[in-house]
Design a protein around this nucleic acid. Sequence first.
RNA 1: CGGGGUGUAGCGCAGCCCGGUUAGCGCGCCUGCUUUGGGAGCAGGAAGUCGCAGGUUCGAAUCCUGCCACCCCGACCA
Length: 475
Amino acid sequence: MSISVTKRSEDYARWYTDVVQKAELADYGPVKGTMVIRPYGYALWENIRNIADRMFKETGHVNAYFPMFIPESYMKKEAEHVAGFAPECAVVTHGGGKKLDEPLYIRPTSETIIWSMYKKWIKSYRDLPLLINQWVNVVRWEMRTRLFLRTTEFLWQEGHTAHATYNEAEEEALKMIEIYRQLAEDYMAMPVFVGIKTDAEKFAGAVYTYTIEAMMGDMKALQSGTSHNLGQNFAKAFDVTYLTKENKLEYVYATSWGVSTRLVGGVIMTHGDDKGLILPPKIAPHQLVIIPIWRNDEQKARLMEEVSKITLQFKKEDIRYIVDDNEQNSPGWKFNQWEMKGVPLRLEIGPKDLDKKQVVLVRRDTGTKQFIPIEKLFSVVTNLLQEIQNSLFQQALEFRNQHTHEVENYDDFKKIISNGGFVKAFWAGDGKIEAKIQEETKATIRCIPFKQDQDGVCFYTGKPSKTVAIFAKSY
RNA sequence: CGGGGUGUAGCGCAGCCCGGUUAGCGCGCCUGCUUUGGGAGCAGGAAGUCGCAGGUUCGAAUCCUGCCACCCCGACCA
């Protein structure tokens, strides 16, 4: 295996796949479009997942598991839903050597099977709200796949909630997109625009779709999480009704929301550089790698003794560290390897340091190297991890702002889009114009941000508008 | 599904045009010794149905036909 990655400036797509493979995050599976998530990549996903899971539970959600096989008839109950998903489904036609009476769809998402169960479980307003999440795999037979960003099978969570009123469902959908914003910005250090999708881009079967949209290193947008207000569409399709306090029969209101292993791709493309990955400390599998450097066994013994003292404290304070005392590889090799894997901090300790009661600390993001007295090590590491976390977010935010341009006419719009970047512009167009813009520029409306406080003129139609939209080419 | 590309050792490739004995190179792997502060050195070693199936030929990695797989770029999508 060669030991460096394609430069981002040379070929961004190749850089991405190089990093994924050389940082040992994932590998191609034997079936087209499938991905093996390797231990290091899975550890990263687990960290993201655990944070999200905690936030879900703190807001009253519980986990459950629904089957991956969905009867064909269920898929077909909600018209928009089947139109949106059926073409990209894997379908099981045989089981136990026999042709099945009814084909089974492998879930592309679980609304239908979950709502078929909710019909059984919801009878009264006392059963509401029902706030269930599941962490599962789903399958979508995509034409073109890319590791983490779009694979035939991927891991995600899908929350499915049932509510008594429209307002409650709306509140839930908004609450969850806010949780996704926090997950992206506060933990993954990935700034996002939060807003609503246009009709053209919303989920098949949703009334409203809310989204977080991040900018990747090549200035394309990544839809990183969505939350849908499903209204009564699925309740009606699956006939899920409840009795109100007033003994009136009403259809239930629903939401669904999800984030996937795509987030891993988002982290890679938000922070990575030509040396490989750069991971935000809060989600990094290892926050710190310790590399002892010795010349003989006696030195190694002394070093390892000091290292075990140091790690004792890290362990106590829940700093995720790894000691690389492998004897086969040279220090230089290890430096490069762990840089490829994006470990936020590197600690070097050798005989010279031991004599001076110090260590060398190197930041992955800036490359800054400093000598730290061992007695101060713990507090310095703690502060540095926080600082790296903040600085990664700030840097990503600056990058995004630098490449987000306001435009007032279509000519400027086209220039910006073809050079790469987000366009932020007043919008008063409709779906037809949106489609035309997409055809001509490949850019779509990523979202209409929640924060709207200005009046202006639509860049395309020239009509007065109070609505700013974010346009970009996307993954 | 359209366009392009690639299938030869675990990985990356050369050889193919112009058929010829034992199919090479780099990295990795194994053993030993010496090394270790930015991708170590030397010596020895293991490892290949040349993507698959037919065909042409005395002889095919190489020529012909068909098929398959994967990657990249588009249309579709988390």
